[in-house]
């Protein structure tokens, strides 16, 4: 059985800077995958590439992206739009800016529901465009209220508000309602809670994950917060310098990291700290690539690096439950 999302060997350049350097990612249907990395690790580029939402100056030099078997990067425009509209949903960092500032929230939702209704009549395979609102009457206003209710926005004033009148948390829930209105098969969330305070953050995450579970929607959640991701997701993929250096079950990646970078990341997380033990920041800075990395991009910061690490690109190896990009993965596993 093939996965819902398959990213293989994806390389993306912005001018002379390389954002993705051969990234691989697999997401099965109904699965929640957290993609973790520092800023600049390429996770946002990876997220955008899933919907071919890369800015114009981005050049894909190699690799493929498949969603439900469809080659996203090679689709003609109409098919691409259909894919985005029916199978994919996106939620972005800045919630208020992600909503049209000149339109009331309810009207934005109506616009999406109507467009989706049109597509629905043209026929969709597998999914019912009604997406959980079958059998209810009451017209479009009731639909709006229903979709806002799904993200726990029950106050009727929300529908008539403009985005700038909403709080960040409310706006993000509206954005989630918009993205989930078409009951997509895969929701890509790019740090949707980065600008929210911690209490609101939890509420928004609850909404996203429970709604996705209800709908059977897979989630790709891009974040820099490894422990938070590990708590909510089935699997975790750790990115470094444009590659996924380790992926596997969330608890394993957090609890028994194999790649030295993952291990360092896990140690540097405040939530994982044992009281009395100093937090260890990852020494050095992440590199910015201008072309393919010659060896392992983490080698300059890696305490275990040896000669071939700087000259030979690591290939994925299976260590226990994890896929790891490290020449010394097997030895390090023993050490761990």
């Amino acid at each position: 059985m093939s996965a819902l999302l398959e990213v293989d060997g994806l390389e993306v350049d912005y001018g002379t800077a390389r954002a993705l350097d051969g990234a691989d990612l697999r997401v099965a249907a109904g699965e929640a995958v957290g993609v973790v990395g520092e800023s600049g690790s390429g996770k946002s580029t990876l997220g955008a590439a899933i919907g071919r939402l890369l800015p114009r100056q981005a050049v894909v030099t190699a690799g493929t992206v498949r969603v439900a078997g469809e080659p996203v990067l090679d689709l003609p425009p109409a098919a691409l739009r259909r894919l985005r509209g029916q199978r994919l949903g996106f939620v972005f960092q800045d919630p208020i800016a992600s909503l049209d500032p000149t339109m009331r929230v309810g009207n934005q939702l109506k616009l999406v529901l109507r467009a989706q209704g049109r597509e629905g009549r043209e026929g969709r395979d597998g999914h019912d465009s009604g997406g959980g609102r079958g059998g209810r009457g009451g017209g479009i206003n009731a639909d709006v209220a229903f979709h806002l209710g799904r993200v726990k926005l029950d106050d009727p004033r929300v529908a008539t508000a403009y985005p700038h009148q909403l709080s960040g948390g409310m706006a993000q829930r509206v954005a989630i309602a918009l993205a989930m209105a078409a009951s997509p098969e895969l929701l890509v969330a790019d740090e949707p809670t980065a600008s929210l305070d911690s209490q609101v953050r939890e509420e928004v995450l609850n909404v996203v994950f429970s709604l996705a579970r209800e709908e059977g929607t897979s989630i790709v959640w891009l974040s820099h917060d490894l422990p938070a991701v590990a708590r909510r997701c089935d699997r975790v993929a750790v990115m470094y310098a444009g590659r996924v250096v380790e992926s596997g079950p969330a608890t394993e990646v957090l609890g028994n990291p194999v790649h030295p970078y993952t291990a360092a990341l896990a140690r540097s997380a405040p939530a994982a700290a044992t009281p009395g033990v100093r937090l260890e920041p990852v020494p050095g800075r992440p590199p910015v690539l201008t072309g393919p990395s010659a060896g392992c991009a983490f080698a300059p910061r890696c305490p275990f690096a040896e000669d071939r690490c700087t000259t030979e690109r690591p290939e994925p190896v299976r260590v226990g439950t994890q896929d790891v990009l490290c020449h010394r993965a097997a030895e390090l596993e023993v050490i761990a």
């Binding site: 985005r84 994919l88 949903g89 992600s98 049209d100 500032p101 954005a175 993205a179």
Partner: peptide
């Protein structure tokens, strides 16, 4: 970002211009 969001929802360029850009 809201235009990016509209693109991500699979809306056509003309639809986006009419509903999200002109105003």
């Amino acid at each position: 970002p809201h235009v990016t969001a509209a693109v991500a929802r699979g809306e056509t360029p003309w639809f986006i211009v009419r509903h999200h850009i002109l105003r």
